[in-house]
Simulated scan of single mutants.
Amino acid sequence: MHALIAAPYEDEHLLLRADSPRAVKIPARRCMELRQAVTRAAITPAWLADTARTAWDLNLTGHRVSTVVRVRHPGRFRHSRGTWEINLGCDYDCEHCYLGEKRFEGLTRPRKKHLLRVMRDAGVAWLEITGGEPLVDPDFPSAYRYAHRLGMVVKLLSPAHGCGTSPP
């Protein structure tokens, strides 16, 4: 799976790493260069290898761009962040919860994948998955991986991990 995501962000472009809060701004021409390198099966350019090493201590030297960078196209609506309640169910009984009966409801797996594609097409690069309790959703692992494959940095908001943490 790719180590970095190159994504448009408002009027700029960013390099992102899924497990890091750090982002690196890159000129639009560099993003275009990466897009072309993917189609040509080119090796990682020196500027990208240097940037990855400096920002994330990541060695990309000698790798094909297509194997290490997911290059995102501009979204239709240029939204960069999204939050998704993957389900309404929860196995906790918090006093402050708004869910009421906490029924385990949500979209089917195909509808979840469709929704993730819609968010990608809207331009979402950062996705926060919450619930209910997202970890009790049987489709959570596959939804998380699918969002990452689509080029999103995914964050988990779960009472089981403390609000606003990334999965282990």
Rank of each mutant, 00 (worst) to 15 (best):
E95V: 10
L99Q: 12
V71M: 06
R64K: 15
R40L: 10
L14F: 00
G62S: 11
Y146V: 07
H13V: 11
G100E: 02
Y92M: 13
E85W: 10
V69A: 03
C90F: 03
L34A: 08
L127T: 09
S80R: 09
C31R: 15
I129P: 02
D139G: 12
G106M: 08
P167T: 10
Q36Y: 03
R70L: 06
L88P: 00
E128R: 14
H73P: 04
L116Q: 04
P167V: 15
P159R: 06
E101V: 01
E85R: 03
R120W: 00
A55T: 11
E95F: 07
R53H: 04
H79C: 12
W84Q: 07
G131E: 01
P138C: 04
A143P: 03
Y144F: 15
H161C: 07
A122H: 03
V65C: 01
R72Q: 09
K113H: 14
A143V: 15
V118H: 04
C163G: 08
W84K: 07
G100K: 10
E133Y: 01
R145A: 14
G100A: 07
R76Y: 03
S158R: 02
T39E: 15
P138A: 05
I26V: 15
R76H: 03
K102I: 05
S80W: 13
V65K: 04
D19Y: 06
R120S: 01
S80P: 01
E133Q: 05
A18S: 13
V154H: 11
V68P: 06
I43G: 03
C90L: 05
R35K: 15
G100S: 09
L99N: 10
C163M: 11
H79P: 04
E85M: 12
P74W: 06
T165Q: 15
A160I: 06
L116D: 12
W126E: 13
R17T: 00
R120L: 00
L34F: 06
G151T: 09
R111S: 09
S66N: 05
H114F: 12
E95M: 06
S66G: 10
A3M: 10
S66T: 03
V118T: 13
N59Y: 02
L107S: 12
A125W: 02
L14M: 02
R40N: 12
L60V: 11
R30W: 08
G106E: 02
S158P: 01
Q36P: 00
P8N: 08
A125Q: 08
N59C: 09
A49W: 04
F104A: 12
S158T: 07
P168A: 11
A3C: 05
